[in-house]
Simulated assay, not measured.
Amino acid sequence: MIFHEYLTTPKTTEQLVNIAKEHGLNWNEDQVKLYSLLDPSIYETESGQWAVKVDGRRHTILEAIENALEKRPMTKIDPNIIEQLPRDMIVPHNEVIEVAVSTGRYESPRENIIRVKRK
């Protein structure tokens, strides 16, 4: 979802409403709160702001995808993305695809390909 990339730093509900509107979603504060409460990776801080839980494994996989796609519109998972991962990290292809697709920026037209999503 669009909020994840913005919630690496905590945001207020009002800020999330504005972000949603920038992305064409006409959500009010209650809808943003509901979405945030239902998303298991988003949590409310003690100060009442929203943030995303940092998942080290997911972050490492996403970084490998971004490095492999640096100047290309598409790349192979194996070897291009797998080579970017730490040697002691075993990641199946379907997990790489799941992480890539979950960002909303990438798609996987075939089992071993990740590409930048066409608009």
Rank of each mutant, 00 (worst) to 15 (best):
P73H: 01
L37A: 06
E107D: 13
I42Q: 10
H59A: 13
E66I: 08
R87F: 14
A51L: 04
W50T: 01
E83A: 07
L34G: 05
Q49N: 14
S47M: 11
E14P: 00
Y106N: 10
V116I: 15
E70Y: 14
K53I: 12
T13C: 05
K53E: 15
L37T: 09
I90R: 12
V17L: 02
S36E: 10
R115E: 12
R57T: 14
L16Y: 00
G104F: 07
G56E: 12
K11N: 10
S102V: 00
S36I: 03
L37R: 06
L25P: 00
P10S: 02
V17G: 02
T12R: 00
I61H: 03
E5D: 05
E83D: 11
I19D: 02
V101A: 11
D55G: 05
G48H: 03
I65L: 03
P79E: 13
E63Y: 04
E44D: 03
V17R: 00
G48T: 02
I97L: 14
S41F: 11
R72G: 04
V91S: 11
V54Q: 11
Y106P: 12
I114A: 07
Q49Y: 06
E66A: 03
Q84K: 15
H59N: 06
T13R: 03
I61E: 08
A51N: 13
R105K: 14
I2P: 08
W50A: 09
R87D: 15
H93A: 14
H23C: 07
R115V: 11
I61V: 10
K11A: 14
I61G: 05
E5R: 13
V91Y: 14
E46Y: 02
L38R: 09
K117T: 08
P79S: 09
L7T: 01
T75M: 02
F3Q: 03
H23N: 14
M89S: 12
H4D: 14
E95K: 15
D55C: 06
M89W: 02
N28I: 08
L7K: 06
P109K: 00
V17Q: 03
R72Q: 08
H93K: 13
D78H: 04
T103S: 10
W50K: 05
H4Q: 04
R110S: 15
N80V: 04
N28C: 06
Q49I: 04
W50I: 01
N67V: 12
T9G: 05
S108F: 09
I97G: 11
E22F: 01
D88W: 05
P109Q: 00
I2Q: 00
R115Q: 15
Y35Q: 04
Y6T: 00
V52G: 04
K53G: 05
E29Y: 01
N28Q: 06
R87A: 15
W27V: 01
E46H: 07
R57F: 03
R58F: 08
P79R: 13
V116A: 07
Y43M: 04
P92C: 10
V91P: 06
R105E: 10
D39V: 12
L25G: 00
S36Q: 01
T103L: 05
F3L: 07
H23L: 06
I65M: 02
T60L: 15
E95T: 15
V96T: 12
I42F: 15
K11W: 09
L69P: 02
T45E: 10
W50S: 07
M89I: 08
E63V: 05
E22M: 06
A100L: 11
E44S: 14
E46I: 08
Q84C: 11
